[in-house]
Each structure stands twice: as C-alpha cells, then as structure tokens.
C-alpha cells in the first residue's frame, strides 16, 4: 500500500471547502478539489464538508463512490489513465493493459508497490482519432504501441525519481 503523498490535515481540507459558499451544490466541487490536491479523499473530508454545507456524511460518501472522478484510496504519484473507450478498445487498449501489468505488476485500480504508479482504465478521453490513448498525469500519449509503452513509463519513473529522490532502485529495465 503506498503512503499518501502528503499528510493531510483537517485544516487543509477546511481551507479548500471554505473557498466555496456553504451550499449543498458544491459538495462535488469541493471533493474534486480535494482529490486534485491530495490524489484521494481522506476520511475526514466527509465530516469537514458536512460541517460546511450540511449534507450528511453518508450522502457525501455515496457521492464519492458514485462519481469516478473521486477515489477513496490514495493514488500513485503518476496516474496512468489508459483509455478503454471504444476506439481505443478496438485498437488494442486491452493489450496495453497487459503490457502495463507486465511492466509495473499492477491491475487497473491498483497502485504499484513503490507508490510511483497507479493504473486506471477510463472510458473515452475524447481523443479517439489518436487511439489507443494513454494519459499520464496531464500528458496525452496517442497511438501508443507495445513498443513505445516501456519508454513512456520509464520517462515518468525517471522524472519522479529526480523530483522526489524516491527509492528507485526497484527500476526494472523493460
């Protein structure tokens, strides 16, 4: 289980929540901001938002499990979104999924043991003409092939290691 990147405090979450007026309709927006900041929704989120806008904790929790943009589990430093929209599916997205499993030993929805990567199978990122498409963090990769895959992953692994001096001795030469 990867460690959450940052130690999230109630104050951090409150600061995000307070950017929005105390109206029920902002529940999703607040959670999305928290998600973006911390890569997941830590448990205190629901209590904080409840205090701010009044929506019951259980209902907020339900929202968090209903919307795919939100996650209750911490994600890896690099989030690989492998598009499994129709165009990508037809052009071999499932094979790429196998390729990623081979390279990182993770299934969709999981994070790698070193916390560097997590993999999500997503529905159509709207770049169908470039299928199959993979998005790592905010960078789009079009027409990804089994050949180009290892280099893309290696590039992000290298960048993460430089950034955070994370333990990278586990690097596997693909």
């Amino acid at each position: 289980m990867p460690e959450p990147e940052k130690n999230v405090t109630v104050q951090d979450i409150e600061a995000i929540a307070r950017k929005y007026p105390a109206e029920k309709r902002f529940a999703l927006a607040i959670m999305q901001d928290v998600q973006r900041e911390f890569s997941y929704l830590p448990q205190p989120v629901f209590e904080v938002i409840h205090r701010h806008i009044g929506t019951p904790v259980a209902h907020l929790y339900a929202l968090a499990t209903f919307y795919k943009a939100l996650s209750l589990k911490p994600k890896g430093q690099n989030v690989i979104k492998l598009c499994d929209g129709t165009a990508c599916h037809m052009r071999g997205a499932s094979n790429l999924s196998k390729g990623i499993r081979a390279a990182l030993d993770i299934e969709p929805g999981e994070s790698s043991a070193d916390g560097l990567f997590s993999l999500e199978l997503v529905n159509c990122v709207g770049s169908c003409a470039l299928a199959p498409v993979m998005v790592i963090n905010e960078t789009y990769y079009g027409k990804v092939t089994m050949e180009s895959l290892p280099a893309i992953i290696a590039e992000h692994r290298r960048a993460s290691c430089e950034d955070t001096a994370a333990s990278c001795e586990t690097e596997v030469v693909a």
């Binding site: 109206e23 309709r25 902002f26 529940a27 806008i53 795919k68 943009a69």
Partner: peptide, 18 residues
C-alpha cells in the same frame, strides 16, 4: 463528476444540485 448517466438530463440536474 465522471458518470456517464449524468448525460441524462434529470441526472445531470440532480448532479448540479449536489
């Protein structure tokens, strides 16, 4: 929020309402 069903008009409105 990332839900296909929210393309349906009444679901979309429910989503806007929080």
């Amino acid at each position: 929020g990332g839900a296909f069903v929210c393309g349906e008009s009444t679901a979309l409105m429910a989503s806007i309402e929080g």
